Simulated scan of single mutants.
Amino acid sequence: MSLAYRTGRSLRRTLVQAVPTILGIVILCFLLLQLMPGDVADVLAGESGAATEETLAAIRSRAGLDDPILLQLGRYLWRVAQLDLGYSTRFGTPVSQLILERLPNTLVLMLAALGLALGLGIIAGSVMAIHAGRWPDRVLQVVVLFFYSTPGFWIGLMAIVLFSVKLGWLPSGGSMTIGIAPTGLDFLRDRLPYLVLPALAMASFFIAVYARLTRATMLEVLQQDYIRTAVAKGLSPLVIRMRHALRNALIPVTTVAGMHLGNLLGGAVVVETVFSWPGMGRLALEAVTGRDFNVLLGVLLLSSMLVILTNAAVDLLQAWIDPRTDLS
């Protein structure tokens, strides 16, 4: 059975499973949000300093908040089926527009953090496995333990103190230089310094996870019979470690990486707040504090879709790494 056929079947299966999963997530989140005290009318009234009961009733009526919960849920699901995420009462903007404005920043930050975590974690884990029991392994295990046991936001704050306040090498917040509109390579040179610290803060914990997992898996793989056969054939140690041992050790690493995407999305709330990064994490926080449930539901819906798509991509990546992987 060809890889292309198995890939198509896997994508169809993922799509069939995704629809009820996303529907269940939307319904559960909608019902749980109804348990939160207050609504957007209360928040707007508090910010304005004073509001009459008639004003609050008008805001709730315009937003449909005075309707029965099941009616609100049915109306929201009907809008979602039409690809309409509703209107933000607090921001005065369609929810889809708000999310599309913030989504690219969050995707860039998440991909940078995930790439940094996988790259450094796999390299560190490979070095630890190759030099198991010797000083490179012991030194790297101390570094990995530090990253594993230290909260990412604390590492971010200390990085701001060191690299921004003391050394002045990197900016302490934001996503780009205000007042300029660079293009091409100038755009990348302007954005990259702002990306380094938040990506490091978000990736620190996962660097430790992937390093320890790569070390353990690679040590196990190096004891397999086919590795002994490769050694007996006279293959170079570099080929054995990189092509045979590391490639098979990457399968559990990619599995865990796909599972961690939801954790990255959750960590984006804290990291984006610390570094004033204009992404979906900060948007979700602003929606919670402002009781803007349409925005929060839109962020949760898109986040669940990203997690499902990422797990499908991980399945395909594993099939490429190991053709024996079952995609059925």
Rank of each mutant, 00 (worst) to 15 (best):
A4N: 00
A4P: 02
Y5G: 01
Y5T: 09
Y5D: 10
R6W: 02
G8S: 06
S10R: 07
S10T: 08
S10E: 09
L11K: 01
L11Y: 06
R13D: 05
T14N: 07
T14K: 02
T14R: 03
L15N: 07
L15E: 03
V16S: 06
V16D: 04
V16M: 13
Q17N: 15
Q17S: 15
Q17R: 06
Q17A: 15
A18W: 00
A18D: 08
A18P: 03
A18T: 10
V19E: 12
V19A: 15
P20A: 07
P20K: 14
T21Q: 03
I22V: 15
G24S: 09
G24C: 10
G24Y: 12
I25N: 04
I25W: 01
V26Q: 05
L28M: 13
L28D: 00
C29M: 14
C29G: 02
C29H: 07
C29A: 15
F30Y: 11
F30D: 00
F30A: 05
L31E: 04
L33H: 06
Q34P: 08
Q34N: 14
L35M: 13
L35Y: 14
M36E: 12
M36T: 14
M36D: 10
M36Y: 13
P37S: 11
G38F: 11
D39T: 07
D39P: 03
V40W: 00
V40Q: 01
V40L: 04
V40P: 03
A41S: 09
A41I: 03
D42G: 10
V43D: 06
V43A: 06
V43C: 08
L44M: 15
L44P: 01
A45E: 04
G46T: 10
G46E: 13
G46M: 14
E47R: 15
E47N: 10
S48W: 08
S48F: 01
S48N: 15
G49E: 07
A50N: 12
A51Q: 08
E53H: 03
E54I: 11
E54P: 05
E54N: 00
T55Q: 14
L56I: 01
A57C: 06
I59W: 03
I59V: 13
R60T: 01
S61D: 14
S61Q: 14
S61W: 07
R62C: 02
A63N: 01
A63D: 04
G64V: 08
D66P: 10
D67Y: 06
D67R: 10
P68C: 09
P68T: 08
I69Q: 11
I69H: 13
L70N: 00
